Amino acid sequence: MLTPTTFRELYYVVHDHTGPALFSDVLSPWLDEHAAAARELLVPLAVCGEWQRTEYVWGDLLEQAYALSRISDLLLLGFQPGLPDGTETPWAHQLHLPEHEVRVTAEEYLGFFSALGLRQAEVARFDPFFHEIAAVEQSEDPDAPIEIVAERWPCLMLGEMLFGRAGVAVRAGERRAAAGIADRSMLEDSFLRRHRPTSDGSLGWGHNSQWKTSFRRDYLTADAYQFTVDANLDIDEENPFSDEELTPAERRDLVRHRCAVRRSEHLPQHENPVLGWRLTVPRK
């Protein structure tokens, strides 16, 4: 039986597991017991607008999806490098980074989430909806577009909903994606990365309260990219918690990329910006 704490309990088992066979020891037996119920639970999130939170209920779909995304972030740690030498240890690492390696193969990672009804999205050209910049090779041309060099981990979709972006190494001009910023600045609405600081609504809350964090929902519909559909404000509305010094382009970059990607005079003030904006981008 799937309960509001089932994903949370699996997270702790994965986090604490120290053996060499995480998939066969933990994930595969869990799927045997829970995969069918988990697929059924997640279905309402697959289509934009089909499910909405009309009132708060503990352990609702947004909280369940968030707990599942934390499991994904743990499983992806083995595909990421460590922090650069001399980098201050992020708060998320102090709170949540396992002291041992968490290792699954790419096939095991995809197999686990495929069993839950998710699918891999393979998009050849760089798109911040599908791709998270994990490493930057700086082009000599400062205006060179962002091009994918390698994929470190896959993108996962649940119907129209983005579950997790692919981690990619890119080559780009400094005015498009700056090395040390696009791949190292604070990654918002994200739980944990081995190689960079992250921030989501769980940080700083207690053992139980942290699980009241809502999953960020982005959708790709027939007509548009829909970012942060559960946010209270449209990106062009006045936001009392935002910094008016951010330009409209910088605000859109923060929502689409979930981090700063270029050098800016405003960047030092936005290591942890508030991203409470909805954004709709028509599909070309």
Rank of each mutant, 00 (worst) to 15 (best):
H93P: 07
V123T: 04
L97F: 11
A134E: 09
L116F: 07
A121V: 11
E140F: 10
L83A: 03
A124Y: 01
Q80G: 11
F129D: 14
P142V: 02
H100M: 10
Q80S: 07
E137C: 02
A124C: 06
A106M: 13
L116Q: 03
E132H: 14
A106H: 07
T89C: 00
H131G: 09
A144Y: 08
E132V: 12
L74W: 04
F113H: 06
A106E: 12
S114A: 12
E99V: 13
Q80F: 05
S72I: 02
T105Y: 09
A115T: 05
S114T: 10
Q138K: 02
A134Q: 03
L116P: 09
S139R: 06
Q138M: 08
T89W: 00
S139P: 00
G86H: 02
A92H: 15
L118A: 12
E88I: 01
Q94S: 09
P84V: 03
P142H: 03
L97Q: 10
S114K: 04
H93C: 04
F129Q: 14
R125S: 08
P142F: 01
V102Y: 12
F130Y: 15
G82E: 00
A121M: 09
T105E: 03
E140D: 15
Q80K: 02
E99Q: 13
A106Y: 01
A92C: 13
D85T: 00
D127E: 15
Q138E: 13
E132K: 09
L95K: 14
H100R: 13
P98N: 14
P128T: 13
E122H: 09
A135L: 07
